[in-house]
Design a protein around this nucleic acid. Sequence first.
DNA 1: GCCAACGTTGGC
DNA 2: GCCAACGTTGGC
Length: 154
Amino acid sequence: MMSYWLVKSEPEECGLSHFLAAGQRGIPWDGVRNYQARNFLRDMQVDDSVLLYHSSCRDVGLVGTLRVTSDPYPDPLQFDVSSRYFDAKATPENPRWTAVNLSLLAPLARLVPLSELKSSLAFADSPLTAKGARLSVMPLTRIQWQVACQLAEN
DNA sequence: GCCAACGTTGGC
DNA sequence: GCCAACGTTGGC
């Protein structure tokens, strides 16, 4: 069953430009340190579709479509003492955090600003538009996916 | 830069 | 197990 997702990142951290540069190789989506977001990562499957969202910047909104290219796997950064994402309580036998690989499907024809999503009925119940929501990985309904792609074409 | 909303930590 | 303090996220 194909699922739809949305992931947030600051554009300088892991944004559209990074995915453009990475091409088919894709990029590990790692460093997620929120349990709810991690649980969604765990539910991802190869070939699931993902919207990329730029957060904490001047033009916040949707910028591209991505594809899941790996099964979920233990985030290596949790074992890396030199990483800011190191977690002393995680062990290879008992990993805490999950990553998946994502690669670019296509940039959106235009950035779909958060303001437009907020005024879209389809996103009324989404954590994306909820006040104060900080969830960085979330599921999308098929309708939300379609609406977002359609908005990008207008 | 401000501030609201959360999640996490740690004392008790 | 409660809850205050603190840190982080993220829109504006």
